[in-house]
């Protein structure tokens, strides 16, 4: 069976008034059917751009794909025609957005927005599409779906709206679901419910899931695999439990240390000093070198490649062997 998704050496740049910003700088990803992958990183690390590039949602210009391949079940999306891409977008891959209120069209009833997928991709009648939309709303556990199908997005609570966005994404039983910060705009109890829903739907439909987030606990809870992104590159990748439990990149370690826990009670939270590099002028060496406690001359002169650091794990650090024992972030 072919890989569900394979991204090879993807490069994306944005032209801005100040110059060319490198948003994605050689990203490789792969995902099997039924597998879940977390993409972890802070703002500007390129995680959302990666998702949008896969979905074909980049605004070009200003964005420009400078190279690479995106293979969805073996078919290269970057060379596919616009029409072919539209046929795949929705039925084969789909996306859940961060802010459900702005992701839904304010002037159309939610049922119509879900039903539109059935009408466009499956040629359903208005009536059949509505019935299918109600069924879908039921499936994501929106109470009294049949009576709410004609309501508008602003009439729902935040959590319910996110369920509608998920219903839309799952409507055509896609193979691949990309969720871009699906819970960031929600309060904590609702967050847990939404993650539970995503996990459950993924398992039921043997769907591949890419979960993009800056929240390490979300990745830990939901995903099998994790890719940590920094300044447009993947700096560490592997099984979630291993990567987060025993990081082999100082950035991953920094992220995992800056989460509050019982041991840190009453003390200041450790933080990674400094800020990410300017994407308009990426350093020649390792992008993380200026914030890294392990950095030496080698790090600032050449960029470390992503290399194997154990079973199914890779890390882009010259000092990956020293990470665990020698790094402590100030607190």
């Amino acid at each position: 069976m072919t890989q569900l998704l394979e991204v090879r050496d993807l490069r994306v740049q944005f032209s801005t008034a100040q110059g060319t910003a490198t948003a994605i700088n050689g990203v490789n990803l792969s995902l099997e059917h039924g597998q879940s992958l977390g993409i972890l990183g802070e703002s500007g690390s390129g995680k959302s751009v990666t998702a949008r590039t896969i979905m074909g949602l980049l605004d070009m210009p200003p964005a420009k794909i400078n190279g690479g391949e995106i293979l969805l079940e073996g078919e290269d999306l970057l060379t596919a025609t616009a029409k072919r891409r539209r046929q795949l977008t929705g039925p084969v891959m789909s996306m859940v957005f961060q802010d459900a209120l702005s992701a839904l069209n304010p002037v159309h009833p939610v049922g119509r927005q879900i039903g539109e997928l059935y009408r466009v991709h499956r040629g359903y009648s208005r009536k059949a599409a509505k019935a299918a939309a109600i069924e879908m709303m039921d499936r994501v556990r929106i109470p009294a779906a049949a009576s709410r199908v004609n309501d508008y997005p602003h009439q729902f609570s935040g959590g319910m709206r996110q369920r509608i966005v998920i219903a839309m994404a799952l409507a055509l039983d896609p193979q691949l679901l990309i969720a871009d910060e699906p819970t960031t705009a929600l309060d904590v109890t609702v967050q847990a419910q939404i993650l539970e829903l995503l996990k459950e739907q993924q398992a039921e439909n043997n769907m591949g899931l890419i979960l993009i987030t800056h929240d390490i606990s979300v990745v830990r809870e939901v995903t099998d695999q994790v890719a940590v992104m920094y300044a447009g590159r993947i700096v560490e990748q592997g099984p979630t439990a291993h990567v987060l439990g025993d990081p082999r990149h100082p950035y991953t370690l920094g992220l995992s240390q800056s989460v509050a826990n019982e041991d840190l009670k009453g003390r200041r939270l450790p933080a990674i000093e400094g800020s990410p590099p300017d994407l308009l002028a990426l350093p020649r060496g390792c992008s993380f070198a200026n914030r890294c406690p392990l950095a030496d001359e080698q790090c600032s002169s050449s960029a470390p490649p992503l290399e194997s650091v154990g079973a199914g794990r890779t890390s882009a650090c010259f000092h990956s062997g020293k990470v665990a024992s020698n790094v402590a972030y100030s607190n």
Binding site: M55, G56, L57, R85, R86, Q87, L88, T89, G90, P91, S94, M95, F97, D99, S102, A103, L104, N105, P106, V107, H108, E116, L117, V120, H121, V165, M168
Partner: peptide, 26 residues
């Protein structure tokens, strides 16, 4: 520029449908 037009695109709708069905009324 609205987010919901990005959603419309993510539903695999044609540019005509995105403009006539989603953008103009708003």
């Amino acid at each position: 520029r609205a987010e919901y037009l990005r959603t419309a695109k993510a539903k695999g709708l044609s540019p005509q449908r995105i403009i006539w069905g989603h953008a103009l009324r708003n």
